[in-house]
């Protein structure tokens, strides 16, 4: 038996919104550690890893480790039936091919029971080694989102260059080119507005903007984003989910042919 209860139901809605444009179907892994997912986009260029730790839920019961295959698009449709302030309970029994979502209004005067069919999904987990990154940039997530949106109106790729001067995001397209530099700014009184750059080596990497822009759908989950870069390695774009875990996106870089 598996049952989890999340008082802040809007969080699950935001998590699914942050995944649904990247992944069609995915196995959610349930264990005593929590509720997690690892999935690639259909072209295997990007990977998303979600972790929601059991301690972050008001109630979490998972008798044995198992996976639930779900269509993310269908899950998003089901979660549309929940209001933002609803409490969400997810339940599944051993051996059944359905999952139940229960949405309770805070005053308990409305309860919705939604049943969704599970799917068999064949997917391998990839081993992601713990790596030391050459450069780590922490910046406001809204700032990163607006940079990606702005640059994607000009070009299809973004080159991220980290140096002592700061982090520069640049693009080039048919109509012209643009670059935006953010300098370290840790003196601000509000930590969520800080930009902090930890650099061991200067790094320059180029990525497809369409994927990076999809990652920024997670902006509402965290006020800060962490971008970790090493030469010839996938970038990691991480949004922490307060008291619960994180959503991490990995994107393979482009190389000169």
């Amino acid at each position: 038996m598996f049952e989890l209860r999340l008082v802040q139901g809007s969080l699950l809605k935001r998590v699914i919104d942050a995944i649904k444009d990247l992944v069609n179907d995915a196995n959610f892994d349930c264990s005593s550690t929590g509720f997690s997912l690892q999935a690639m986009d259909s072209s295997h260029v990007a990977l998303v890893a979600l972790l929601l730790r059991s301690e972050g839920f008001e109630h979490f019961r998972c008798d044995r480790t198992f996976s639930m295959g779900m269509s993310i698009a269908n899950m998003a449709k089901m979660l549309k039936c929940a209001s933002n302030d609803d409490i969400i309970t997810i339940k599944a029994d051993d051996g059944t091919d359905t999952v139940t979502f229960m949405f309770e209004s805070p005053s308990q005067d409305k309860i919705s029971d939604i049943e969704m069919k599970l799917m068999d999904i064949d997917s391998d987990h990839l081993g992601i080694p713990d790596a030391e990154y050459e450069a780590i940039v922490r910046m406001p997530s809204t700032e990163f989102g607006s940079i990606c949106t702005s640059l994607s109106t000009i070009g299809d790729t973004v080159t991220i260059a980290v140096s002592k001067q700061g982090v520069t995001f640049s693009t080039k397209g048919d109509i012209g080119s643009g670059n935006i530099t953010c300098r370290q700014n840790s003196s601000t009184e509000k930590p969520e507005e800080a930009t902090i750059i930890e650099m061991k080596e200067p790094v320059v990497l180029t990525f497809a903007l369409k994927y990076i822009t999809t990652f920024t759908k997670a902006t509402s989950l965290s006020s800060q984003v962490t971008i970790s870069l090493s030469s010839d390695m996938p970038v990691v774009v991480e949004y922490k989910i307060a008291e619960m875990g994180h959503i991490r996106y990995y994107l393979a870089p482009k190389i000169e042919e």
Binding site: L47, H125, Y250
Partner: peptide, 14 residues
Amino acid sequence: QQKQQVISRFFAPK
């Protein structure tokens, strides 16, 4: 011309 790499080039199946 730039070539897009895939994730499996970096991370192997567990």
